[in-house]
């Protein structure tokens, strides 16, 4: 999850043609990739799609550090192949669909700053939903900071050890409890400051 900030950094600092492309076009592109992934059932077509996405990944000079993120969904796809009788064709089909969709999404995130994505979504999604999305995104960075500090405290209290499962569960729960309590306190302060600035269920972006 720490990679959220790294992706954000890549999206803001990058200067490739994909970075310069309008967020609307890129979201449309992702829609096209997902449509292809959903409808296509031929291995050749999926290999071609994955190849194109990998090519875009390297052309946009996206850091290889985020490539493993695209493999993460394979972990969950593995569970699904138990449904089949481990047929090679089915496994390849599922894995290629997963890899293509994940690479497309990571490519979008690594080349488009979040506020621009939210701004585009704001045009066709209810403003309350986009505001909630924005506040969640902002809160994630606040809580990540708290989580980092809490991890030190957790470590000093023994951290998570399989030798002492009950003690470890209490430590983990206290850490989450602390995270939630700090989050709630912060949200109350955030609400007060937002009200002072005239917040009414909608966040306005620079181009609004």
């Amino acid at each position: 999850m720490i990679q959220i900030s790294y992706l954000d950094y890549l999206a803001i600092e990058g200067g490739s043609f994909l970075h310069r492309l309008s967020p609307g076009v890129k979201i449309l592109g992702i829609g096209f990739v997902l449509l292809w992934v959903t409808l296509l059932r031929s291995l050749t077509g999926l290999i071609l799609l994955y190849g194109i996405l990998l090519l875009l990944f390297f052309i946009s000079r996206t850091s290889l550090k985020v490539l493993p993120l695209t493999f993460y969904p394979l972990l969950f796809a593995t569970l699904f192949i138990f449904i089949s009788h481990f047929q090679l064709h089915f496994i390849l089909l599922v894995f290629l669909k997963v890899l293509s969709a994940a690479t497309g999404v990571v490519l979008l995130l690594a080349t488009t700053p979040y506020p621009f994505i939210f701004q585009t979504l704001n045009r066709f999604l209810p403003s309350v939903f986009v505001t909630a999305l924005f506040l969640t995104y902002r809160s994630m960075f606040i809580l990540l900071k708290v989580l980092e500090e809490t991890q030190h405290a957790l470590y000093l209290r023994g951290g998570f050890q399989w030798k002492h499962p009950w003690r470890s569960l209490i430590n983990l729960s206290n850490a989450f409890g602390h995270l939630i309590m700090t989050g709630i306190n912060n949200s109350e302060k955030m609400y007060e400051s937002m009200r002072l600035r005239g917040f009414k269920n909608r966040i306005h972006y620079r181009s609004d």
Partner: peptide
């Protein structure tokens, strides 16, 4: 969204953001 009061939604949106963020981190 029809069931919840507008003022209540405004007041609780930052809390919603924080709890959603905690769920993502979880």
């Amino acid at each position: 969204s029809r069931l919840i009061k507008k003022e209540d939604l405004t007041r609780r949106l930052p809390l919603l953001g924080m709890m959603a963020a905690a769920m993502v981190l979880g």
